[in-house]
């Protein structure tokens, strides 16, 4: 009987490497697409492929919970917010045909290279805690315990950060039309004008 444990033994180290390259082969073109597509909304949709690929990598590392969270939050939630923001700010949905400014190219290349070197060195560095022991099947329980005991403080800080962002967004979005006297006067004038016009129309 094909059981999960049997499958796990089947998926040897070798197979994992092959799968990794397969996922990379799918994900990297998506990432390039996000950068190179001139149609900015399509680039936004391509992000789904990138995030989906990353979630597949998490699955390969047997981090099921992270993979699902990645899919739910990044591949769907974040991408949708990005795409909708793009649609609202670029309502004509035209391709961006303006030529890129040459003065920006050199600093952009510099920052990109520096970032790449920093990430590369971080990946090569020691201290990733490589251990080959098998993960327990209920690692969700372990994640839960550590989030609420050892990492309780960062966890709480993350929630406070989100709360601040939420309150800030509400404050920015809240258009208080009637908070200043000038506004009220303006509106009164407008209504007066409109009513006069209406009277005129009625007379005619």
């Amino acid at each position: 009987m094909g059981d999960l444990s049997e499958l796990a033994t089947l998926a040897s180290k070798h197979m994992e490497t092959w799968l990794f390259y397969l996922v990379a082969l799918i994900t990297v073109p998506f990432a390039f697409g996000v950068l190179l597509d001139r149609n900015i909304i399509r680039a936004g949709f391509l992000l789904i492929g990138v995030f989906g690929g990353i979630s597949a990598l998490f699955l390969l590392l047997q981090a099921q919970f992270l993979a699902m969270a990645q899919l739910m939050i990044y591949a769907v939630g974040i991408t949708l917010v990005v795409v909708i923001a793009l649609m609202l700010t670029n309502p004509r949905m035209e391709e961006d045909k303006s030529p890129s400014i040459p003065a920006q190219k050199a600093p952009a290349a510099l920052v990109g290279t520096l970032l790449f070197i920093a990430l590369y060195m971080a990946i090569l560095s020691e201290g990733w805690g490589n251990n080959s022991e098998a993960l327990s099947p209920d690692n969700i329980t372990i994640i839960g315990y550590s989030l609420l005991t050892h990492y309780a403080l960062p966890f709480e800080f993350a929630s406070i950060l989100l709360l601040i962002a939420l309150v800030g967004a509400v404050m920015l979005a809240k258009h208080d039309h009637f908070n200043s006297k000038a506004d009220i006067d303006e509106i009164e004038e407008e209504t007066k004008e409109i009513s006069e016009r209406n009277e005129h129309v009625v007379k005619v």
């Binding site: 949709f45 789904i48 099921q64 919970f65 699902m68 969270a69 899919l71 739910m72 591949a75 769907v76 939630g77 991408t79 949708l80 969700i140």
Partner: peptide, 15 residues
């Protein structure tokens, strides 16, 4: 991850 997987999958169709 059972129900979490179902939820994650059923959130995709909106895209």
């Amino acid at each position: 991850t059972g129900i979490f997987y179902v939820l994650a999958m059923s959130s995709i169709p909106v895209v």
